[in-house]
Design a protein around this nucleic acid. Structure first.
Length: 182
DNA sequence: GTTCCGATGCTT
DNA sequence: AGCATCGGAACG
């Protein structure tokens, strides 16, 4: 299990480091293959851009805590608070490959809304520290630097200059990465 | 194959 | 009003 201090680094560094790690919820688990870093209030794509609100408050608190919210009224999104000294920061987990307790089908964890459904994550897990048997992240597979692709984040075109920043991290060519097939 | 659109509810 | 999405319908 990764200790809470592991998340107390720059948000983009944590986003990259989460690739290949196992996200475990109860008896279900997936290997993280896609993440996005959302920086502090200056990041116009981040929920933190409006400052601290009722929804995003945990982003401003201690690292290693889950931030779960409902998107488009339909999908639960699972984030992990991660930052060093910035005012706020979180990593959106966008895709996992089945590891345990899931159908052996890359599609079930492909996309941020799909993975939360597959792993049974919802706002019930919001604000939980990731240091309990029930919900945690563990080191699993080492991912080589040349197997990591950085690109622009998905669905943030409104964010002006921040939309193009390479803050999305994927394992190159992995079948569970969201989006179109290459 | 691509593009378009409705569902659905919470946030500012 | 708009959104850190998804799946199905419509179209070529």
């Amino acid at each position: 299990m990764l200790p809470l201090a592991w998340y107390a680094r720059e948000t983009d560094v944590v986003a990259r480091a989460l690739l290949g790690c196992a996200l475990v919820h109860g008896d279900r688990a997936g290997i993280i293959v896609e993440t996005e870093a959302y920086l502090g209030p200056e990041d116009l794509a981040s929920h933190a851009r409006f400052g601290r609100t009722a929804r995003n408050a945990v982003m401003f608190d201690a690292p290693g805590v889950s931030y779960v919210y409902l998107c488009y009224g339909v999908h639960e999104m699972f984030n992990i608070v991660a930052r060093r000294k910035a005012e706020a920061g979180a990593v959106l987990v966008r895709a996992v490959a089945p590891l345990a307790g899931l159908p052996d089908d890359a599609r079930v964890g492909r996309g941020p809304g799909k993975l939360t459904r597959a792993l049974g994550l919802s706002r019930a897990q919001h604000g939980r520290t990731l240091d309990r048997d029930e919900l945690f992240v563990a080191a699993h597979t080492r991912v080589r630097a040349r197997d990591v692709v950085c690109s622009a984040r998905v669905g943030v075109d409104y964010a002006g200059p921040w939309a193009a920043r390479p803050l999305r991290f994927t394992i190159a060519g992995h079948p569970a990465v969201s989006g179109k097939r290459p």
